[in-house]
């Protein structure tokens, strides 16, 4: 250990150029990422605080936040159930079409959001066949919060599958077999053995889907109908404020979204630390 350390210590002396490389990297990251994000927060904070608060607490902004967080939470919850299930089938039930099914899971990530947006709006719109079918049963998807949840579930789905799948694959199948030989029923095995081991990964997938859902714009835009107070999500409200040249108002909403996303990021990191330490301890 001491030897490895001494070697590592020596090695950065061997490769020269640390100072200029580090300075340039940090410089570019600062200019491209940190400065623009800081400007958003700064723009929001230079407005008068009472005015800012009045805007964020206005009926329109509150409705947008409630809708954005509510729809993103619901969509992430749907994704956890559907995504974990599909991950389980992909890992435990290998069949002829496994590779195809596995590849299809990535489609929402590969599809540009505007393309997904018009496809979902057409499919579930009043003239789309899925939309018409559901309409016949009294369920309206397009231009309602339900449509927003659907679009967010679509974009968040791969995040849960890809978070759960590797953990499940690393979990030896004989774990479950052992439980079964010891007389545990199938349900008991899933509830007592598999679920506790998967829970951190499922939670992480949930957080990733949620983070994506909070900021999603393109895939929601077309199906939501964008009615203020009813189906106007927060990212869209930013765009609408900009069209009224209300830069402070747009920046204030953006800051709320940034802080939420950042909080989720920290939560995911903490969760992972727990996940890793537990697996290592085992």
């Amino acid at each position: 250990m001491a030897l490895a350390h001494a070697f590592a210590r020596r090695s950065h002396d061997v490769i020269p150029g640390r100072a200029p490389a580090l300075a340039l990297t940090v410089g570019v990251v600062t200019m491209v990422v940190l400065v623009p994000l800081a400007v958003v927060v700064l723009t929001a904070s230079t407005a008068s605080w009472p005015a800012l608060w009045a805007q964020l607490a206005s009926a329109r902004d509150l409705a947008a936040f409630r809708l954005t967080f509510g729809a993103a939470l619901l969509a992430a919850a749907i994704d956890v159930v559907a995504g974990s299930y599909v991950a389980w089938v992909l890992v435990r039930h290998r069949f002829g079409g496994t590779a195809l099914l596995d590849a299809l899971v990535d489609v929402p990530l590969a599809l540009p959001t505007a393309v997904a947006g018009i496809a979902l709006a057409t499919l579930y719109g009043p003239h789309g066949w899925a939309g018409a079918l559901l309409e016949a049963h009294g369920i309206t998807v397009a231009y309602t919060p339900l449509g927003i949840v659907l679009a967010l579930a679509f974009v968040g789905f791969p995040f849960v599958v890809r978070a759960v799948q590797p953990v499940l694959a690393a979990l030896p199948a004989d774990f479950e077999e052992a439980a079964a030989t010891l007389g545990a029923s199938r349900n008991a095995t899933v509830v007592r053995i598999v679920f506790p081991l998967l829970a951190p990964a499922m939670l992480a997938g949930f957080a990733l889907a949620l983070a994506r859902g909070l900021g999603e714009y393109g895939s929601v835009l077309f199906i939501s109908g964008n009615l203020p107070l009813r189906t106007e999500i927060a990212p869209l409200l930013i765009v609408n404020r900009l069209e009224e040249y209300d830069y402070h108002g747009a920046a204030a909403i953006a800051t709320v979204l940034l802080v939420s996303a950042f909080a989720l990021l920290v939560a995911i990191a903490l969760l992972q630390r727990r996940l890793t330490s537990r697996q290592v301890r085992d």
């Binding site: 623009p36 994000l37 400007v39």
Partner: peptide, 17 residues
């Protein structure tokens, strides 16, 4: 960081900068 930023917020950040 850009992976967790809403695309709209990203565009706004560039516009405001």
């Amino acid at each position: 960081l850009p992976l967790t930023v809403s695309p709209v917020v990203a565009g706004l950040a560039i516009l405001l900068t």
